[in-house]
Structure formats: structure tokens, C-alpha cells
């Protein structure tokens, strides 16, 4: 049953992506993007990665939909017809997809207990986490303690990105208000 749900959700995702590629109405594309994120989140839930699913739903379906709508409010709603033929991009995408599928042939099977990741470090963490850190949740211990510097770096990157966005949007606001003030002075 779970395999069937996987197949059905993946089929929905493929159909959604084709519709996104075909549509020229950007608002509809944004909404279908939200649907795609919800489908991806469902797949993650089926794979028992509830935290990843949660991030996907809140970032993909929630925040980025709102950001895209905010962008559309500043620009236009209809995509222009591309000037070039989409043949070359199609070839590039097909080759990239073929390479990625070729790469999965060598990867470990999903949930395989004999895969190298399961054999090498996972037993070590499972045995020693409680002893080393005293944290009952192994995933949290790996993220916050064993890879603490890595997580700190990630937080720094996200913080820097946030500062950049605030600077960009803040200067945009100031620019608008400055231009309106100039208009008022002229009047």
C-alpha cells in the first residue's frame, strides 16, 4: 500500500511539473508550486522523515508562495513567450536527468541496513551518544553536538542571507518613499 501511495504521489508531482512548465499564467504557476511542495512533503512523511517534510511544507508551500506572490505584486502576472526555441535546454535537461538516474544506480537502496552509512558511523553514534552528550535524541545530538561547528556555520550563512534580504527590501522601501517625497515637493 505504501509503495502505491509513493507511486501515486510521484505521478502527481510529475504531472504538476509538466503543467508548471506549460502554463504562462504566473499566478497559477505559483499556486501549482505550492501544490508541488505539499506533494513533496507527503513523500517525506511516507519516508518517515517528518522533520524534513515539515521544513518542506513551511518553506515551500508557505513562505516561498507568499514571497512569489509579493514578487508578482511588484512585476507582471503573465510570462512572455521565450524568444529562443526550447530545444537546446530540453537536450541539456535530458542529459542531466540521465546522468542523475545513472548516479542513483550506484547509490544505496532506501532503508537498506547493509549500506555503508548504516555500517560505519551509525552504530557508533547510537552506542555513544548518551555517553558523550547526554542527549536522548540521536539526531539532535549529531546536529547540535557532534556537528556543532557545522550547524554554527549554517546558521551564520542563513543570518547573512537574512541581513542581505533586509538591506535589499529596506532600501527598496526607502527608495519608494524618497521618490514620492520628491513628487510632493514638485507639486
Amino acid at each position: 500500500m505504501e509503495a502505491w501511495i509513493d507511486i501515486i504521489i510521484l505521478f502527481f508531482m510529475a504531472v504538476t511539473v509538466f503543467a508548471i512548465a506549460r502554463l504562462r499564467n504566473l499566478l497559477a504557476v505559483v499556486m501549482l508550486g505550492g501544490i508541488y511542495s505539499l506533494l513533496a512533503a507527503s513523500i517525506f512523511v511516507v519516508m518517515d522523515a517528518v522533520d524534513v517534510a515539515f521544513t518542506e511544507a513551511s518553506v515551500g508551500a508557505g513562505i516561498s508562495t507568499i514571497l512569489f506572490i509579493g514578487t508578482l505584486a511588484l512585476t507582471t502576472r503573465i510570462e512572455k513567450k521565450p524568444a529562443h526555441t526550447p530545444l537546446l535546454p530540453l537536450i541539456v535537461v535530458c542529459i542531466t536527468g540521465a546522468v542523475l538516474i545513472f548516479g542513483t544506480l550506484d547509490a544505496a537502496v532506501y532503508g537498506d541496513p547493509q549500506s555503508p552509512a548504516m555500517q560505519d558511523v551509525a552504530p557508533y553514534y547510537l552506542e555513544n551518544t548518551k555517553k558523550h552528550t547526554g542527549i536522548p535524541n540521536v539526531v539532535t545530538a549529531v546536529l547540535a553536538s557532534y556537528r556543532g561547528y557545522d550547524t554554527l556555520g549554517e546558521v551564520t550563512v542563513i543570518f547573512t542571507a537574512g541581513i542581505g534580504v533586509i538591506l535589499l527590501l529596506g532600501s527598496w522601501r526607502r527608495g519608494i518613499s524618497a521618490s514620492t517625497r520628491r513628487k510632493e515637493e514638485e507639486e
Partner: peptide, 22 residues
């Protein structure tokens, strides 16, 4: 999983409110 489903409902609500406001 029911708790997670509830939070999804909240996210869905926020997205639709943003769309309608637009």
C-alpha cells in the same frame, strides 16, 4: 502524525490568506 497534520493546516491557511490579500 496528527499533530503534524494540524500544523500543515495552519501553513495552508497562511498561504491562502496571503493569496486572497494579494
Amino acid at each position: 502524525f496528527l499533530d503534524i497534520a494540524l500544523v500543515y493546516a495552519l501553513i495552508n491557511f497562511v498561504g491562502v490568506i496571503a493569496l486572497l490579500k494579494y
